[in-house]
């Protein structure tokens, strides 16, 4: 009887898991296996795929556009991750400081709201804000007596402009993380420091920042992963221009794969992106599985 019910329970467990497993295999694992296979083929959307060994890789490393796209992607990561981290930390500290409770809710909502919007809405709005003739940003710089920049068309400023929009869009996500982390720091730490006569600045340097180590790592890892995959902002705001200065790796993959239908070549680049991201996705998975429920610090 006992053995019977145990076997039944095992069967039930597998049955409950089965739909998920089947879908994961069909829509994640099989495409992944194919994604590895495709890099060895000349695979155009029509016609028979042709095995060409490592030719895709050889072509890729001598492809100047690929190398520059890779560099633009790293440049974008550098332009976005540190400001996101520093700004979201500061905003969270302010939102968690001794201010009126209503203001706490307000600042938190205000900073999270943009993150709920779709990337199209964000980018189309910012494209107009950046407009050198009537955009509000050029109006603001003009009133400050600065030179007007044609942000999205200027080769030097196009990428920083895309980065600024991205920082604005995503900061809320990290603010929430930091606030959650800050709330988990025991008040007794600060009280003890106050008894020793520590200033606010010292409390920040010696208690807040080091105790939030885990949150810092989480913010860095998730934001690097997000920024490495940057596509929508570039596609919508600059289409990779001016003169390819904002073409990132996903943008180039999209162009090669879905505009010229060179699927094998595009997948080879996607595979390289996968390898670069592997380090960070593994780190993220380790972080996620290493802590107990809702503990951030």
């Amino acid at each position: 009887m006992i053995i019977h019910s145990k076997r039944r329970r095992t069967l039930l467990a597998y049955l409950l898991f089965l739909p998920f497993a089947i879908l994961l295999i069909i829509f994640k694992l099989i495409p992944f296996a194919n994604s590895v296979r495709m890099v060895f083929y000349k695979w155009d959307i029509l016609g028979t795929p042709q095995f060409i060994g490592l030719a895709n890789f050889r072509r890729m490393f001598s492809d100047k556009v690929f190398v520059s796209s890779l560099w633009h992607t790293f440049y974008f990561v550098i332009l976005t991750v540190p400001p996101i981290m520093v700004l979201s930390f500061l905003v969270a500290v302010l939102a968690n400081s001794k201010i009126y409770t209503q203001a706490k809710g307000f600042i938190r909502s205000a900073f999270y709201l943009p993150y709920t919007l779709t990337i199209s809405v964000v980018c189309l709005t910012w494209t107009l804000l950046y407009n050198p003739y009537f955009g509000l940003i050029s109006k603001a710089t003009k009133s400050l007596g600065l030179k007007t920049i044609n942000w999205l068309v200027d080769p030097t400023w196009a990428m920083p402009a895309v980065a600024i929009t991205t920082v604005w869009w995503t900061i809320g996500f990290c603010v929430i993380l930091y606030i959650a982390g800050l709330q988990q720091i025991p008040a007794s730490y600060y009280e003890a420091a106050e008894l020793d006569g520590a200033t606010d600045f010292k409390k920040m340097i010696f208690i807040t920042i080091p105790l939030l180590k885990r949150v810092h790592v989480l913010v860095i890892v998730t934001q690097i992963i997000a920024s490495l995959q940057i596509f929508g902002q570039v596609y919508i705001m600059t289409a990779g221009g001016p003169a390819g200065k904002t073409r990132t790796i996903m943008q180039y993959i999209y162009e090669q794969g879905f505009r010229y239908f060179r699927m094998g070549y595009a997948q080879t680049m996607a595979f390289i992106l996968f390898l670069i991201m592997l380090v960070f996705s593994y780190l993220q998975l380790r972080l996620m599985t290493s802590s107990s429920k809702e503990e951030l610090i």
Binding site: L24, K28, L29, I30, P31, F32, N34, S35, M38, I225, Q229, F231, M250, I253, G257, M263, A266, Q267, A270, F271, L273, F274, M277, L278, S281, Y282, Q284, L285, M288
Partner: peptide, 12 residues
């Protein structure tokens, strides 16, 4: 699924 970003398998 965490180890396989959707962008990496978009083409296949």
């Amino acid at each position: 699924g965490f180890m396989i970003p959707s962008q990496a398998i978009a083409i296949p």
